[in-house]
Design a binder for these strands. Structure first.
Length: 478
RNA sequence: CGGGGUGUAGCGCAGUUGGCAGCGCACUGCGUUUGGGACGCAGGAGUCGGCGGUUCAAGUCCGCCCACCCCGACCA
């Protein structure tokens, strides 16, 4: 069955990605253009992402709420930049119950406007602030070109919306949430990210400042993995979110919004996956270890399956475990199958292991025989736990090294042009949009972000040679 | 929205000069297998993307439409 092999990442990364998504059963194409069905395995992964984030949101005082998906279309005309940014990709409902609606309803592409409307209603006094609400929902943006998880017409995400009494507090919130995303990406998804500020041209429509975390995918392209926006008073003024301060003066509130979407699943696939399929970070994997029983004779089957069941019961107490009892497919088939699905650890148990009171462990991040070790039944839960932690760490290290190997610091514009073909370039940039545009026209690379971490001092802009106080990351992006 | 491509069984494809709708994989049943993608036998499965035209006869020729994929401009 040679046709069952994936295209290699080197020969066709895009096709490799599509096939991994479909074959690992993360998602499938829906009958509507650009829409996807998230299948149970993909949704389980999303649930683990949700749990890890939700825990962090709650710990920082946020609460969840539900807002409607229909928003009066006129709301989108209230904030100038926001209209320009979102009008082209709005889906609008004009008929309801068989009758033409008096006012068309936009299907939310993001909820700043309806949040603004409601917050205006709820906020009267400084005592009502801050409001720290998060929404887990889906949004619709009419995208021209779509790709499973990375850019679909409808996608699932969380959007946080907060309102504060002071600019400082709102700015602090914006940074706090970006820190949470960074922590999540690094420690749960094992994806090294670059936190930083977006350039004027790349920022969210209606924001004063947009922060983002940028990650490098396995094909060296950049993926914006989460964003956090400081909205200043733009939406407060557009929707009249006003409160009386301690001195009894009317003030406009300061708002923020921040989001992370199912695009993160795409990032996990593209950062960690290899030519045999998906590799999931243990912290987020729906199945952390799969037990594959192996037998030849009937009596072996009974003994092996019984032991496999015992081990599963024991490990289930601390780990997410699956026993693969399918008959009629060979162990070799199962190995490949679970490797495609990215299960980080495989526990093989057969007659040989029974005789030795042990199991064979196989690490997904180390293919073939070298990833196999023997582990005693005694203390197996701890062994697995430790191995999973090692895998989690090694995935992060591998990805960090990869990014390092594909990030350069070119000294001339000529070098720069070559550099962005091979990965990220970290270069001095004057901040001028003319230079940014020139880069984009010449190389198709864009400013990914101006990282918080700066070398200090000044340098010469890689394009115009003018004095620059900051370095920026440049690269081709999804 | 421009350029290119593809629509035939769940998936991948073949189908000659217009003449009974086919192959591989997957699926179902039975048997033998099972430590890195097993094999045999027997089955089920089709509005040939849609509509119209030419013809005794269209998967095949002609026209229109639709969908999807790939490449470019816009985006979490």
């Amino acid at each position: 069955m040679t046709e069952d092999r994936l295209p290699s990442r080197a020969e066709d990364f895009s096709e490799w990605y599509n096939q991994v998504v479909l074959r690992a059963e993360l998602a499938d194409y829906a009958p509507v253009r650009g829409c996807m069905v998230v299948r149970p395995y993909g949704w389980a992964l999303w649930e683990n992402i949700q749990a890890a984030l939700d825990k962090r949101f709650k710990a920082t005082g946020h609460v969840n709420a539900g807002f409607p998906m229909f928003i009066p279309k006129s709301f989108f005309e209230k904030e100038k930049e926001h209209v320009e940014g979102f009008s082209p990709e709005l889906a609008v409902v004009t008929i309801g119950g068989g009758e033409e609606l008096e006012e068309p309803l936009a299907i939310r592409p993001t909820s700043e406007t309806i949040i603004g409307h409601m917050y205006a209603k709820w906020v009267k006094s400084y005592r009502d602030l801050p409001i720290l609400i998060n929404l887990w929902n889906s949004v619709v943006r009419w995208e021209k070109r779509t790709k499973l998880f990375l850019r679909t017409t409808e996608f699932y995400w969380q959007e946080g919306h907060t309102a504060h009494a002071t600019a400082a507090e709102a700015e602090e919130e914006t940074r706090r949430m970006l820190d949470i995303y960074t922590d999540f990406a690094v420690n749960e998804a094992a994806i090294p990210v670059i936190p930083g500020e977006k350039s004027e041209s790349e920022k969210f429509a209606g924001a004063v400042i947009t922060y983002a975390i940028e990650a490098m995918m396995g094909d060296c392209k950049a993926l914006q993995s989460a964003t956090s926006h400081y909205l200043g008073q733009n939406f407060a003024k557009a929707f009249n979110i006003q409160y009386l301060d301690v001195q009894n003066n009317q003030q406009f509130a300061w708002t923020t919004s921040w989001g992370l979407s199912t695009r993160m699943i795409g990032a996990i696939i593209m950062v960690h996956g290899d030519d045999t399929g998906l590799i999931l970070p243990p912290h987020l994997a729906p199945i952390q270890a799969v037990i594959v029983p192996i037998w030849k004779k009937e009596e072996e089957k009974t003994a092996v399956c019984e032991k496999a069941g015992q081990i599963a019961d024991e490990l289930q107490k601390t780990l997410r475990i699956k026993v693969d009892l399918r008959e009629g497919v060979t162990p070799g088939f199962k190995f490949n199958d679970w490797e495609m699905r990215g299960v980080p650890l495989r526990i093989e148990i057969g007659p040989r292991d029974l005789a030795a009171s042990s199991v064979t462990l196989s690490r997904r991040d180390r293919p073939g025989r070298e990833g196999k070790t023997t582990a005693a039944w005694e203390g197996l839960a701890q062994t697995c736990q430790r191995t999973l932690e090692e895998i989690q760490q090694s995935l992060l290290e591998r990805a960090t090294q990869f990014r390092k190997d594909h990030t350069s610091d070119p000294t001339t514009y000529e070098e720069f042009r070559t550099a962005v073909e091979k990965g990220f370039a970290l270069s001095w940039w004057c901040g001028g949009s003319a230079c940014e545009t020139k880069i984009k026209e010449d190389t198709k690379a864009t400013t990914r972000c101006i990282p918080f971490e700066q070398p200090g001092g000044t340098g010469r802009c890689i394009v115009c040679g003018m004095e620059a106080s900051k370095k920026a990351y440049f690269g081709k992006a999804y």
